[in-house]
Write a protein that binds this DNA or RNA. Sequence first.
DNA 1: CCAAAAGTGTTATGCTTACACCCATGC
DNA 2: GCATGGGTGTAAGCATAACACTTTTGG
Lengths: 239, 239
Amino acid sequence: MSDTLLTVPAKPFAYQYPRPAVTVDIILFVFQQDQLRVLLIRRANDPYKGKWALPGGFVGEQENLYDAALRELKEETNVSNVYLEQLYTFGEPGRDPRARVITVAYFALLSAEEVAQQEVHGASDAGEARWWDIYDLPELAFDHQRILDYALQRLRWKLEWTALGFLLLPSEFTLSELQKVYETILNEPLDKRNFRRKILTADVLEPTGNMRAGDHRPAKLYRFSAKAIEFEQARRRFP
Amino acid sequence: MSDTLLTVPAKPFAYQYPRPAVTVDIILFVFQQDQLRVLLIRRANDPYKGKWALPGGFVGEQENLYDAALRELKEETNVSNVYLEQLYTFGEPGRDPRARVITVAYFALLSAEEVAQQEVHGASDAGEARWWDIYDLPELAFDHQRILDYALQRLRWKLEWTALGFLLLPSEFTLSELQKVYETILNEPLDKRNFRRKILTADVLEPTGNMRAGDHRPAKLYRFSAKAIEFEQARRRFP
DNA sequence: CCAAAAGTGTTATGCTTACACCCATGC
DNA sequence: GCATGGGTGTAAGCATAACACTTTTGG
């Protein structure tokens, strides 16, 4: 059992040193210029020197995993005020050539407003940082491509079964903007009337009363009602 | 980033010692005597002496997480040939009063056949082991109740969206037996005709041609078709 | 007035749910 | 022959998916 450190003498000491390093890695998604983007940091040293990698870092001695993910995001990318959710833990012995590193991956959604307000680029002390279109990525370090694939899968899944899309938008947005987010993440076109009906009948949006002025006909602005954050509306499969 | 061990001099050494211990804990579910049961091991020492805990143990230096979970199950409970899936990673600093222990929880489903064949009880060198009805549990050590709650939630969810129930049954089973598994796990009665229709139209079962003799009218036996293992049949939320 | 995006309803189909009786066997 | 669990069908309501035109604004 996990907690026999003092109760089964033979075992715990066999594992006390060396222990694996434990890190968190964060897949930070934003929606910018009609693209789903993810933040990557260029590695300054070997291994994988010059390759791009997910932001992340070591978990503090007395720090819980969620806090570690938040802190690393703040430190490396100057991002706070973000939706964070644990994704999966990757621990293949060979995933880092230098040492045994077990990483707890988190995925994060950052609203367009926060992206604009916070100076995200280059805020990292880990080197060059930039956003990459999820459909046009560079070669990634370590097993980070696999982690990213998994995160994208989870994001798509979440989008279909919860109303999470708004987390990538400003607090007020039009239905067309929301549809664009869904289309970009799911990577396929959606029917406008059906999309609107489904979102509106889900009863998670409320009109703000304001309009988005633009080049053409102004669009009604909506916000998500607070109660709707992370609602699970999956229907029952059995009666 | 998780992998800056050699690239950011200040950080890695700050974390190299002490590192957290990393364990796996396994929630092993079986279906016995019309009950959903979970395997627990009684703690022989403090803390939580006498309390029941999930089986688990330290991850080996060169062992991946899945293998560690398999090995611990084998060592502590003599169980192999089991469905294993990573559940969640729990890492609150205070979850073990002695040391920082981060545990990667796995949930496991064991078929009735395997339960019968393998000598599960007391196979553990960690002390007394027994099955507990999920609806009538003792007080658990550490944060294991929370881990178990989460596992049960995942199991229910899986059951509704995938056809995983058969993993808890023998390789041949009747529809009534399968329904009972679903009812027990979801903790509510299901309609017989609707259940049968849904399972049969899902096209994951095939009749074996055999019949289960019993006290009353014999029942047709089914097996799951191999392709159906862990099929994700979740319908799309958007057209 | 024209280009561009906003906005709006209906129909057909299939899935979900609720519901009650006969069948085959062992005793 | 009776008790027990095995086995079957239908109808109503609801959600989904496909589909095209009008409205409003800026330039």
